[in-house]
Computed example of a mutant assay.
Amino acid sequence: MLKHPFDIPESKKVRLIINTDAKNEADDQFAIVHALLTPRFKISGIIAAHFGTLRTDHSMEESYEEVNKVLELMNLKDEISVYKGAKQAFPNEQTPELSEGAEFIINEAMKDDPSPLYVAFLGPITDLAAAYMKEPAIADKLTALWIGGGAWPEGGFEFNLMNDIHAANVVFRSTIPLWVIPQNVYKMMRVSIAELAVNVKPYGEIGNYLYQQLVDFNFDVVNKHIPTMVERARQAGKEVDPKDYEGWPKGEMWHLGDSPVVSLLLDDHQYGYEMKPAPRITEDMHYVHYQTERMIRWYHLVDSTFTLQDMYAKLKLHYG
């Protein structure tokens, strides 16, 4: 069992479920590890999420394997339960993709437990929408955080949203308390590879893995993933120019875009958000502003220094 070097009052702790498309890129792993090293969180479980079909037909299974690998490196595989989420997106807004991950959300939400429950989504929001459609009573028993969506007020292309627009619309029109950390905000989590080499790589097997898998992914994108995406698009009858991907990744930097879910649960950044009426999302991922009753928390700022320094400090405290 992981022992934290300090503790906080029990009344300040919260239950947390992490829903993660962990094998999509290289940033989910940092957020998962950061959360596991945080005394405030009582991690109820981790749900593996799909990340579409651009690169593979087995994205959820790959995420499941990656989550277990991270837990194994931290010697926590027997301590944290991992659940399989939906294998794919909703086919429409009336047909949920049920999964053991969605069932787990329902079961945890309906528990008689005084600790607040938060569910953090680092990829598509499929499993929350499915859980809500099966059991609407969960809406007033949890708070959801979602890394996803384009910038307010227009919206636009964003990867996590692209992977299940239907589910996002279900959640947006629900009554679930929702914190949205959109693309323009999560991209504030800018780090350099040199910074990670100094502050992450030296600290335990997990620190070395976090650093190395990001470096390796940098090469995999160029040498493997982009050619695969281009070929799969062509097989589906779509022409994709490889030059469309030339700007990503940039080479010496990355966005640890999933990490805000940790820091916002340590301090909710009251200066960093506004309550906004939930829009409807179109097929091309733009926002239609049609109502003023359903309000959600929309972030326009996250403190990247606070987030990163907390993660670095916890790695050093545990593995220094």
Rank of each mutant, 00 (worst) to 15 (best):
E79V: 12
S81H: 14
G85H: 02
A86C: 07
Q88H: 15
F90V: 02
F90A: 05
P91F: 12
N92G: 07
E93V: 14
P96E: 03
L98Q: 15
S99E: 03
E100Y: 09
G101Y: 02
E103M: 14
F104H: 12
I105Q: 01
E108N: 10
A109S: 15
A109L: 08
M110P: 05
K111I: 10
Y118D: 08
V119I: 15
A120L: 08
G123W: 00
P124M: 09
I125E: 07
T126A: 06
T126I: 02
D127P: 01
D127R: 00
A129N: 04
Y132E: 06
M133G: 08
K134R: 13
E135F: 06
I138W: 01
I138V: 07
A139P: 00
A139W: 02
D140Q: 11
K141R: 15
L142V: 01
L142W: 03
T143H: 11
A144T: 00
A144S: 10
A144N: 05
L145S: 10
W146K: 08
I147H: 04
I147L: 08
G148E: 01
G149N: 05
A151R: 10
W152H: 13
E154M: 14
G155C: 04
G155Y: 02
G156W: 04
F157H: 11
E158C: 07
E158K: 06
N160L: 06
M162P: 04
V170G: 09
V170I: 11
R173F: 09
T175Q: 11
I176S: 06
I176P: 00
I176Q: 08
L178V: 01
L178W: 05
L178H: 05
W179K: 11
W179H: 12
W179I: 03
V180F: 07
I181Y: 04
P182D: 00
K187D: 13
S192A: 05
S192M: 06
S192K: 10
I193P: 01
A194Q: 14
A194W: 13
E195N: 12
V198C: 02
E205D: 14
G207Y: 00
N208D: 14
Y209R: 02
L210D: 07
Y211P: 01
D220C: 14
V222H: 12
N223M: 12
N223P: 07
H225C: 14
